[in-house]
Design a protein around this nucleic acid. Structure first.
Length: 906
RNA sequence: GGACGCUUAGCUCAGUUGGUUAGAGCAUCUCGUUUACACCGAGAGGGUCGGGGGUUCGAGUCCCUCAGCGUCCACCA
């Protein structure tokens, strides 16, 4: 029935064996047909990692959480779908393949042409695209791999086209010439969300500009971008600014030579700040968003002086033409200086928009792009505001609400090749004529398709339902069962960094096409940082390789360590020590299980009831009651913690119960009963019960070792899996015990708490007196009261073993102790220290303790004597305070006495 | 310029609706190889809860304020 547990735990071997088995037997496969009233559906869609991605600590955190949730749901008897997949990651993937192409063949994508290039990308995807999926498997993720999706799957792509056409026809999508964030490195437009504002140390340049109508009169302008002077269309001042209002309507002469040397108008615009610089603004409508708006208000000319790649074009004048934009800046400063127009330059720090992907400053640029006016905004806002959809931690809902309340139209077109191509064709004969549909026009030869693709996030926002077989044209009644049963999903687990990119947009899409929210709860993880608090990144090289950690410590250990340090929604400071702790924990668990096996024959462990029926209530002592009490509390604690997404409370509860209560205390204490034939069976039954329920609670966190031990201890026959077991609730567990006639005795639980304290003090006493390892000490105890006597009586045998005592003599109340003493819950305990005692050290220790107790007594007395406290505090608090003061006082007196007798000896 | 978060032992963090003498793990120190585990066991030292003020019989826990750190949002060139 069971086999011997090997001496060492080999995580690598155990993990790969079980994972294979789980997948083979379809453990992770969701079946909509099994969903019923008594077997509710539970679903999560994975935040699809980039297909180019490799597993990093953020993935570990995020996916471990999801795996814990889905595995817990299975143990709770739910039908579970965890739907996995990858994201085509437009820019990232294309750039990567382009780099390879350049390196290997020295070619660019243009050399290959669109079709051939895309073939290369697909080849790459087929060959290397699955890396991260395999890594997730190593971590133990129980995704339904039979349903793995990719955002460029044919079906999925079809959905994207359809919703584009849908939105276009509804009037949400439009094409327009706007100022966009242009990435000069990737040569594409970006959405506002893809631009990161970063501080940049530069200079503020002050230069003079002459007024055409008043030769010899100059205005001074402050700018950070002198290279754009050739693109200036006007000079703006605030009309309320009395320094400059008089110049409005006049003209100025651009100082740098360029193609068009006509004087530019001086206009009045209220957006100009008095305080900044000189209060005079140069207006460059083609290269700055604010300036573009000013240009519109004043009908200014838009002169684009740059090429798409960020170099200056001919309109910038022959001095700058062809120059890279930052070189051109230096050059223009030089020119201004030569012309004697540069007044000064001062160091200046401002924020510059950086392309998230290419890490280069973006260039505001006027270009023709497709934009989306967000749909279903009111419903999307309302569902979070009303609490119908919950964010954990709740505070993120404010961030969401703020963004939703300030929506800007979304630039969705990208000048890339890798992605979903925009389903729009332009008539060759009349470029203004547009055809928009999922199928190309019938007379395709007369049309030209838009060359652009859609923003990757424009495909991601359909992820929760497009992955489940949704189709826009299918009536709801005919939708796939998968969608009907598993949508909306239960939880979404993701990082707060993509709340706008992804979460908000998915909510809108959910309402727009499914008429409801796509998930009920969103759990936002923290950001994983290194020990020094720095965000983990490839460039910093501070991110450990999770695969390496798994190889060295095991996936369970990595999961355990990560969760133990992941407080609710706080950033996670990763430290390999935590993984080591996880490894140690697995080792402890392994050995405790092994010890159980070595302690006596294995009996019927086949079900909870079978084990409970082996327990004989009359044979249970206080320790049994205490550990069962702890077990029930553990079950409740784990369940509550997970229901509240408190993963580290969950992990800590498991750790504390198992290590401190079960191993350090219960198993140790029970050793004395193992040698007694009459008692052994009962003790082992309780251990079997504890281990079984513990493994069930633990399984979502460390599924591999839990599964392995669950089998080795005979809780389940071969061919079945732990995940099919039912994790009974705390109440059900207590109920099962009661049915067997075992009602947990609160007094016994309290007794054990006192006994444990007593043992700790006795051991400390030995340790202080250089007798830490002696096993035949002579103790004497002046009992506190009769109850203490009875308690001691009942536990005498095991106490002697636990504290290494030859004898515990009971002394009458007023007798003198021997050697060193300590005040314990059972009374004053003394140790015969003949030949051992270190009077000086013991005096020092007791003096310190006395000082502490004196303080406590003083504070307690003051509190009780405070009439306000006595009259206003509730009765139980008052009583508690009095009782505590009495105890503290007694202890203080006792310690004082001990100290006195010690002084006599010294 | 706004918003949010954090500040508790050397380090990383717990501390439930304010209520008895603030807890873990790691690290440090002492002792230990007793028939599960040295990836172990026993014990010890170490915080007055960022500063200040307030509310209260009572505050790490609520309010105000200051400081430091961090994140997000924002069209001051």
């Amino acid at each position: 029935m069971t086999q011997d547990i090997p001496k060492n735990y080999e995580s690598a071997q155990v993990e790969s064996r079980w994972y294979e088995s789980w997948v083979d037997k379809g453990c992770f496969t969701a079946d909509p047909a099994r969903v019923s009233e008594s077997r509710p559906a539970y679903s999560i869609v994975i935040p699809p990692p980039n297909v180019t991605g490799v597993l990093h600590m953020g993935h570990v955190l995020n996916n471990t959480i999801q795996d814990i949730l889905v595995r817990k749901a299975r143990l709770d008897g739910k039908e579970v779908l965890w739907l996995p997949g990858t994201d085509h990651a437009g820019i990232a993937t294309q750039v990567m393949v382009e780099k390879q192409l350049k390196k290997a063949e020295g070619k660019t994508r243009y050399d290959l042409g669109r079709e051939a290039f895309l073939e290369r990308v697909w080849d790459w995807k087929k060959e290397k695209g699955g890396i991260i999926i395999n890594q997730l498997k190593k971590l133990g993720c129980s995704c339904d791999w039979s349903r793995e999706r990719f955002t460029m799957d044919e079906r999925y792509s079809r959905c994207i086209q359809k919703i584009f056409v849908d939105l276009y026809k509804k009037g949400y999508i439009y094409r327009g010439k706007r100022m966009v964030n242009w990435c000069p490195a990737s040569l594409t437009a970006l959405s506002d969300e893809e631009v990161i504002m970063e501080p940049h140390k530069g200079f503020l340049y002050y230069f003079k500009i002459e007024i055409a109508e008043e030769p010899g009169t100059f205005l001074t302008i402050a700018t950070t971008r002198p290279e754009t002077i050739p693109g200036d269309s006007a000079i703006a001042v605030n009309p309320k600014d009395e320094r400059y209002a008089k110049y409005i309507g006049k003209h100025a002469i651009r100082p740098l030579p360029c193609e068009n040397q006509e004087p530019i108008p001086i206009v009045g615009d209220e957006s100009v700040e008095f305080e900044f610089g000189t209060g005079v603004l140069k207006v460059t409508p083609a290269h700055d968003k604010t300036d573009f708006e000013i240009g519109r208000r004043h009908n200014l000319k838009v002169t684009d002086i740059m090429n798409p790649d960020g170099t200056m074009n001919a309109l910038a004048g022959k001095d700058l033409a062809g120059m890279e934009r930052f070189k051109a800046r230096d050059k223009s400063v030089e020119l201004l200086r030569e012309l004697g127009l540069l007044v000064k330059e001062e160091p200046y720090e401002n924020k510059v928009g950086i392309s998230e992907r290419a890490k280069v400053p973006i260039e505001p640029r006027l270009s023709e792009q497709w934009f989306l006016k967000y749909p279903s905004v009111p419903a999307a806002r309302e569902c979070v505001a009303s609490g119908a959809m919950k964010f954990h931690p709740e505070r993120w809902s404010k961030v969401y609400e703020h963004w939703m309340g300030n929506l800007q139209d979304w630039c969705i077109s990208r000048q890339l090749w890798w992605g979903h191509r925009i389903p729009v064709w332009y008539s060759k004969s009349d470029p203004a004529k547009i055809y928009c549909d999922v199928t190309p026009p019938a007379d395709a030869e007369n049309w030209e398709q838009d060359p652009d693709v859609l923003d990757t996030w424009f495909s991601s926002w359909l992820w929760p339902f497009a992955t489940m077989g949704w189709d826009m044209d299918t009536p709801d009644a005919e939708m796939p069962e998968l969608l009907k049963k598993f949508y909306p999903t239960s939880d979404l687990v993701t990082g707060p960094d993509i709340i706008f990119f992804w979460v908000a947009r998915m909510i809108m899409a959910g309402f727009e096409w499914r008429g409801e929210m796509p998930f009920r709860n969103v759990y936002f993880t923290g950001i994983v940082r290194d020990k020094l608090g720095r965000k983990m990144s490839k460039t910093l090289g501070n991110s450990p390789d999770p695969l390496d950690l798994i190889a060295r410590y095991g996936a369970d250990a990595l999961r355990f360590g990560t969760m133990r340090s992941a407080p609710l929604g706080q950033d996670v400071l990763f430290d390999e020590k935590n993984v080591e702790l996880g490894r140690n924990f697995c080792n402890k668990l392994w050995n405790a299980s092994r010890f159980r096996q070595m302690s006596g024959p294995m009996a019927d462990n086949s079900s909870l009831e079978a084990i409970v029926s082996r327990i004989v209530p009359e044979l249970c002592d206080a320790d049994d009651h205490a550990i069962l009490d702890g077990l029930v509390r553990l079950v409740r604690g784990c369940s509550d913690a997970l229901a509240n997404y408190e993963f580290n409370a969950y992990t800590q509860a498991l750790y504390a119960f198992f290590w401190n209560d079960f191993c350090d205390w219960y198993v140790e204490v029970a050793k004395t009963r193992l040698t007694d034939e009459k008692l052994r069976g009962n003790v082992l039954a309780i251990q079997d019960l504890c281990l079984r329920q513990f493994l069930l609670c633990l399984a979502p966190l460390t599924p591999f070792i839990a599964e392995e031990l669950y089998h080795l201890l005979g809780y389940i026959p071969e061919g079945e899996f732990l995940q099919s077991q039912k994790l009974v609730s705390a109440d059900e567990l207590a109920g099962t015990l009661e049915k067997r006639g075992l009602k947990i005795d609160a007094t016994a639980v309290n007794d054990i708490a006192q006994i444990r304290e007593f043992v700790t003090q006795a051991r400390a006493l030995k340790s202080h007196n250089n007798a830490g390892t002696k096993k035949d000490c002579l103790f004497r105890l002046v009992l506190k009261d009769a109850a203490a006597g009875a308690l001691l009586e009942r536990n005498a045998a095991k106490l002697k073993t636990l504290i290494g005592a030859k004898e515990i003599e009971i002394l009458s109340e007023n007798s003198e102790g021997i050697g060193a003493s300590a005040v314990t819950p059972l009374g004053t305990l003394s140790l015969d220290t003949t030949g051992l005692i270190d009077v000086a050290a013991e005096t020092k220790r007791l003096s310190k303790e006395l000082e502490k107790l004196d303080k406590a007594v003083a504070a307690g007395t003051a509190k009780i004597n405070n009439p306000a406290f006595a009259s206003k505090a509730p009765a139980h608090i008052l009583e508690g305070a009095k009782k505590q003061l009495a105890e503290t006082q007694a202890k203080r007196d006792e310690v004082a006495k001990l100290l006195e007798s010690l002084k006599l000896k010294g």
